[in-house]
């Protein structure tokens, strides 16, 4: 236990990288989820097709392969080497955005057709229909699965260790294990707690947003069973 302060300080050095990677990944995921999710519902076949290729391409391959591809292969093709953290954020966002696109698409499609018709009867334009009527209702449906997706993303941020980003997992593996080998349990105990806490923070924020969104619908927040709609990465 006497090494606990040093273990905490080494992991603390990695915490900003984990948090930045996760936050950056989440922001990119949100942008891509909504962008691709809406494009998947486009009336134009070609647009849907191209978006499908993105979604299936990233869902169909391993995240580690995507990471290595962007970090090692892309520089050869375009002649520009991404900083590891940036490459990592790009992969976290691209990968989870592909899953998020399906969540957004499904939530929009779950809004009853009657709501579209009500909006048409008020002569709202297609953009107004989407923004004012459909999306606010779809949002309530997509928040619980997005929460799961963001937790997956937090967990995935650990693979940035494989391309030398000094985040929490890499700090544990490369700094702590070689130096404090006797404290294996303590080291991993602390690492587990760090991820549990970060996951709890994400869930707390998402629950707060869920309550806010549900209030806007005049509903009590209904927390669905998260299992069957869980998005596995």
């Amino acid at each position: 236990m006497e090494n606990l302060p040093r273990i905490l300080s080494v992991l603390g050095d990695g915490l900003p990288e984990t948090v930045i990677a996760t936050l950056g990944g989440i922001v990119l995921t949100i942008v891509l989820s909504f962008g691709a999710g809406l494009l998947l519902l486009s009336p134009w076949r070609v647009v849907r097709g191209v978006t499908r290729v993105y979604v299936e391409g990233f869902r169909g391959t391993s995240e580690v392969v995507q990471l290595f591809w962007i970090y090692f292969v892309l520089p050869v093709l375009v002649g520009y080497q991404l900083v590891p953290l940036v490459a990592g954020i790009a992969v976290l966002g691209l990968n989870h955005g592909a899953y998020g696109a399906e969540i957004v698409r499904g939530a929009i499609r779950s809004v009853p057709r009657a709501q579209y018709e009500g909006a048409i009867a008020l002569s709202l334009s297609p953009a107004q229909r989407m923004r004012r009527v459909i999306l606010p209702q779809a949002l309530v449906e997509m928040l619980p699965p997005l929460n799961n997706l963001f937790i997956q993303l937090l967990k995935s941020s650990s693979i940035l260790a494989l391309i030398t980003v000094p985040e929490v997992t890499r700090q544990a593996r490369e700094v702590l294990i070689p130096n404090f080998g006797d404290d294996t349990f303590l080291i991993f105990g602390v690492v587990f707690v760090v991820y549990l806490l970060l996951a709890a923070v994400i869930t707390a924020i998402m629950r707060w947003i869920e309550r806010w969104a549900a209030r806007r619908l005049g509903r009590r927040p209904v927390r669905q069973r998260k299992v069957l709609e869980e998005v596995a990465v």
Partner: peptide
């Protein structure tokens, strides 16, 4: 615990523990 923490960390844990 297992669901909320990274698989990679669990792999390292088993490997070293």
């Amino acid at each position: 615990l297992v669901r909320s923490t990274p698989l990679l960390v669990q792999v390292f844990f088993l490997f070293f523990a």
